[in-house]
Amino acid sequence: MKVIRGAVDEMWSVMEQMVGSVFRHGLPLTDKIAARTALTNFVLHIHPVRVRRSWIRMSYTLCLGGLSFFLFIVLTVTGLYLMFYYVPSINHAYQDMRDLQFVVTFGGLIRNMHRWAAHAMVITVWLHMARVFLTGSYKKPREFNWGVGTVLLLITLLLSFTGYLLPWDQLSIWAVTVGTNMAKYAPIAGPYTRYLMLGGHAVGDATLLRFYVMHVVGLPLIGFLLMVVHFWRVRKDGFSGGL
């Protein structure tokens, strides 16, 4: 009996050690424990340990920056799922979309979520910019971070635009034809820019591959790095605080 009891106690303490090695400070019952948790947790360290209540009032931030970042995460996760089933070639792309919609388990739902989250992200990023402008939060010392944010807005648009071609249906090919036609009006560089984007003179197999690579690797990577800088600067420049 004693032996069994001892073994159970031993197992219990090992379990405690396991949980304790992940969550080092237990439940945040006091401010001190909460502060220590935030300081030593990788996910939470993006946030300042202490904030003024007026900085994080939801009626001030509307949570728009956070929602934009969250949508980026949703898009990454759903996009990963779509990538398992999608081949960026004009012979496969459209059929893969049909399969996603009608054959793949949850394929239609995941595709819909990816699509609507992309539209939502364009809107939240845009509204985030409007909020920052209207509260004058771009003013000294946050001029640089406003610039980073502007580039992030452009990257959001480009991500959405490159994704638009991938279903390879009549909507996507002609929308991208119209969109890339705008580039060719630039003096001197215009036609070259368009050729670079399309990988040819018309939207075709090369275009699909280029847009795919930029959509799943190039732009998300640039966007992610800029987001890291953006969040870092929010911390270092300080929250703009309520008006």
């Binding site: 909460a34 502060a35 935030a38 947790n41 202490r50 003024r52 209540r53 994080i56």
Partner: peptide, 17 residues
Amino acid sequence: VRDDSDDEMIVSFPEFI
């Protein structure tokens, strides 16, 4: 800018998060 140095200071975890 509104002076917010007297505003209540809170620990961001768990409320903010």
